[in-house]
Design a protein around this nucleic acid. Structure first.
Lengths: 335, 335
DNA sequence: TAATCTCGTGTTAGCGCTCTCATTGGGAGC
DNA sequence: GCTCCCAATGAGAGCGCTAACACGAGATTA
């Protein structure tokens, strides 16, 4: 294992000063093309790679973007994360993602501390509540902050899926099929996304002069299953359900099926997220698709812009889309 | 935003030399308790945090473990990743994961380059082929390497799920239910895991003196669906299918159902992975469960050990487990 | 033609830390 | 009481890089 080449080795081989090499690395403007070429050749020959730590020490810039995220066990956050990684890499940034649990302040501190140590340039907060964001703001004061999946704020750039509108779309889809007794099963009550979807549902119901019927849930399959059984046990059944995410829908369908309530014949169901499995389960799930790629790209894009030249903070949204499959159908007359 | 405190500020406040502060930070042994206390008080007062970059520059130790992984879009790798992050954090290491695509050498280089820049202490290679690992070995020569989901090697520590045995278990389960015409749909042919599962299948079939019947696939739902249709079109149907992963199984079930072939009445199906959705689809999927947490912990554990005191390389395995649900049943006599 | 300005490059000084070596002031050993 | 040693601390160098300034040579201006 030979010693790694440094900037002086390159300089010597190319017959220039180390500073000229540095200029090549940071592609400075005033450089003779011939010199640049010579240096580049030397770099290639020595397999030289600039030492990030040294660079960081002098520029106090780490080229690392931290991501603080609640609940990576879920499809949504995880899809966003992947998109962000791709996008950041193109711009020469690395991503460190730290998942924390919203209900353990200790885990926040740990996560924030980890990012602090790495001297990250920016943090993207995904799906965090205000309290945590405040903490981030305080502890990572020198980092640029971008917020995803949280209420818009004047202090940061925010990027969101059209959660509310998605809720409206899902609900109106069911209404347009003739359903009147429509239940909504929410995500966790302390989350922004779930709240917005719920508001969307309520807005659409109100507009159609229908009575809202909300059951509080979370994002899990298990809870969906449990609630599905609860619904099946009702004296008068609803004819349609709109769930906060696809996992809830899957759990509910399972429970309903076990109770001999057929989907979609007896009950129409709309999910949210459009997970990859959605079109392969039986019945294939009608759902609201979120463009996680676009969301991730947008968030990283804003981060890069703010990192380069801080500008006025804005709120961005990414549209949602209704994907109709087999789990919803027209309400049979007489019901 | 005031200047961050450095080691000299602390030293001055505590009335000692910077070197003594450094000793406190690295809790050196020969230090008067009184001095240590004084320094610690100064650290607290100034909110001092050692600068990671400076440290790294001099020690050439980053406390970062890189993870190179093919295909994070899949449940398995992603679950492993999460487990690793948790485990590494406890030991004070950060994780940077880079996903690459096995069939694009350019993406390997990019990924490796990114890790190189960060001066990672170790790399964990998940689900990579030999060619890529060779490349990693060459380019990241100063990093400790641990291999996951790949053939055992004398040069590195390796950690694997019992893929072969899982394949045997799945197949024997079907055989024990009376099935004789059992098809195996594989994962991608260039992947180690898929190969092992296939070998397991072949081994079990051979032992039972049954004829192997293998269809090559990949890990995707779409491919499962396509192959499901192909199987449905056969003149004589098999009575059972063992698939390389759960997504394939889901796709196949969808196709079979559309062709009026009922699961499990007409066809028993066993998957592999036991994704969270497995017990919530209809019919609930019989599958081979992998303990991804254990796998991740083990890999990180080995990495930490090798990082601390390089020892002889060993191969480790994590057991797989058959989880029987609804998608398999006894072969009806007369078939 | 002298004064000024550019371009392309070299020189020097740190960034904040740890390493190595030097230094001091007692206590043990004789 | 003297050497010797060791525990406890300090001083200085240097990790690899970039920023700021310096400098010479040719081009441009007055």
């Amino acid at each position: 294992m030979t010693r790694k080449a440094n900037i002086y080795d390159v300089a010597k081989l190319a017959g220039v000063s180390h500073q000229t090499v540095s200029r090549v690395l940071n592609n400075h403007s005033s450089l003779k093309p011939a010199t640049r070429e010579r240096v580049e050749k030397a770099i290639a020959e020595l397999h030289y790679r600039p030492n990030q730590a040294a660079r960081q020490l002098v520029t106090s810039q780490s080229n690392i973007i931290g991501i603080l995220i609640a609940g990576t066990e879920l499809f949504g956050p995880w899809a966003i994360l992947n998109a962000m990684k791709r996008e950041a890499r193109v711009a020469g940034y690395s991503i460190i993602s730290v998942s924390i649990s919203s209900d353990s302040p200790e885990s926040w501190h740990e996560g924030i501390d980890q990012l602090h140590k790495l001297d990250i340039d920016g943090v993207i907060c995904i799906n965090l509540n205000h309290q945590i964001i405040k903490e981030v703001e305080k502890s990572l004061s020198s980092a640029t902050i971008v917020i995803v999946d949280t209420e818009a704020s004047k202090k940061f750039d925010t990027v969101n899926i059209e959660n509310l509108n998605g809720g409206v779309m899902a609900t109106e889809h069911l209404i347009s099929l003739g359903h009147k007794k429509i239940v909504h099963v929410t995500g966790p009550s302390d989350g922004y996304e779930g709240q917005q979807r719920r508001f969307g549902y309520e807005k659409a119901m109100q507009k159609a002069k229908l009575k809202a019927d909300v059951i509080e849930g979370d994002w899990s399959l298990e809870t969906g299953y449990r609630i599905g059984n609860e619904i099946a046990a009702r004296k008068t059944l609803p004819t349609a359900i709109f769930t906060g995410n696809d996992h809830l829908a899957l759990g509910i369908i399972k429970a309903l099926t076990e109770n001999r309530i057929r989907v979609p014949q007896d009950m129409s169901i709309v999910g949210f997220d459009d997970i990859p499995e959605a079109s392969y389960v039986s019945p294939a799930l009608t759902s609201i698709r979120q463009d996680f790629d676009q969301l991730g790209n947008l968030a990283i894009g804003r981060m890069l812009i703010q990192l380069k030249t801080p500008t006025k903070h804005k709120a961005f949204t990414v549209p949602a889309e209704l994907v109709v499959r087999e789990s919803t159908q027209k309400l049979k007359v007489g019901k």
